[in-house]
Design a protein around this nucleic acid. Structure first.
Lengths: 225, 225
DNA sequence: TCGTTTTTTTATATCTTTATGATAATCTGC
DNA sequence: GCAGATTATCATAAAGATATAAAAAAACGA
């Protein structure tokens, strides 16, 4: 569950935002002034900050440079292009002008949260019991290492980068072409088969599912001994 | 060319808005009451809706939650902060209070239209209990997954992209030709039949309705056990 | 070069999907 | 209601995809 700090002196607007975010199952922290925000951020580390620029005491502009490591979305009534540029230059992740639509706000919050997750991207992809380390090229199923060939590794990595997404065979061929330039659709099937077998030998479950007429997808399926 | 629905009972105000939007080369649809609006939205899918809150019959407040997938700008004489909060919370994209300047209205319309174009990148189409994920190719009826063939999937996707709109058989054939080049009008009927059966088996309702002499349309119908 | 590993090709069994024709049900205009 | 046309469903055969195994070809390291 993600925590979002709402720094806004207008109680009405702050409440709108809080209600909307709560509805989306975020945890919301409120602060009504710059100094209060500073105090809050010493105690807590939210995943994202919504910051009004016009605050009593310490203003948002002054506060913004003090925040680091947490994405900040600036919410402001100021409309000048300069304000926007300044905010983004000072490290804001995004900028929303009042009046804003709640839906838009929620959408942007979701986007920025997702982005920040990716930034922290560790070199290891995980999906279900699968883990794949892009640095060491190690693959393991619930801890047990699995030896894969280069093509198998490329395929699994591609699938794990788009979990649950249906990947067309042609698209897969293109995207592993760097590793195996002369892999055809029929040999691809063979590799998928081999990959499946290796994973199945260790885990019992089938991870790679065929999407009829399209290609393949990575999906969690109940074990079916 | 974008279509905008103006839902406003005051004929003078509605005409002013229509004139301004027409001048900007939008296509304008008018409705003068909530129920009329509902009827209109069954037949047509505008790109944006301008909604007056004080309508005879079904009020704007009641209508607003029923609209989904189309940005709504609420136009109202009400000025209380609560009205604004309620409107935005119910999914309105923006809020304009009367009296408004025509220039401002046009500007906001343009902004929200631009936004909605970007937002519409959502990978999941929804209609009633139906949901279709264009990335994973998954289709579900109120959460229950349904397995569709490639052609069935293509057809349902097409219908869901134009909900409530009558699609000619010839038009449908053209637009799924990429997937199934040699599908004829008679086999199309077969696919529709199969698709209907699969959806009916899960939900009990019939989503796809025949439009006599034309083709088919997606429509919510009461279950009829 | 030899033996091993990996990749591609070939072959085959199985399953799914699609197209089609026949039949039943439904709709429209009269 | 009736006749003609349209639409819905069923059954089935043909076409198309997939999964696996086994063999041939290519790549690689010692």
């Amino acid at each position: 569950m993600k925590t979002i700090a709402v720094i806004e002196d207008d109680i009405d607007i702050g409440s709108i935002i809080e209600a909307a975010l709560t509805k989306e199952h975020y945890r919301v922290l409120r602060a009504y002034s710059g100094s209060e925000a500073l105090y809050l951020l010493e105690k807590q580390t939210p995943d994202l900050i919504l910051l009004d620029l016009m605050l009593p005491g310490l203003t948002g502009e002054e506060l913004l440079p003090l925040i680091s490591g947490i994405p900040v979305i600036v919410v402001s009534a100021k409309v000048g292009i300069d304000d926007k540029v300044n905010a983004l230059m000072s490290g804001a992740a995004d900028y929303i002008t009042k009046p804003f639509s709640v839906r838009e706000l929620v959408a942007r919050v979701a986007v920025r949260l997702r982005e920040s997750e990716k930034d922290n991207a560790s070199p290891v992809l995980a999906y279900g019991d699968l883990s794949l380390n892009t640095l060491s090229h190690e693959v393991a199923v619930s801890g047990t290492p699995v030896k894969l060939t280069k093509t198998e590794y490329a395929l699994l990595k591609l699938l794990m980068q788009h979990p649950g997404q249906a990947l067309a065979k042609s698209a897969m061929l293109e995207r592993i072409a760097a590793d195996t330039p002369d892999c055809t659709e029929s040999s691809l099937k063979q590799h998928i088969s081999n990959l499946r077998k290796k994973l199945r030998d260790v885990s019992g479950s089938d991870y790679i599912e065929a999407v009829w007429g399209i290609g393949f997808t990575l999906r969690l399926v109940d074990k079916e001994w």
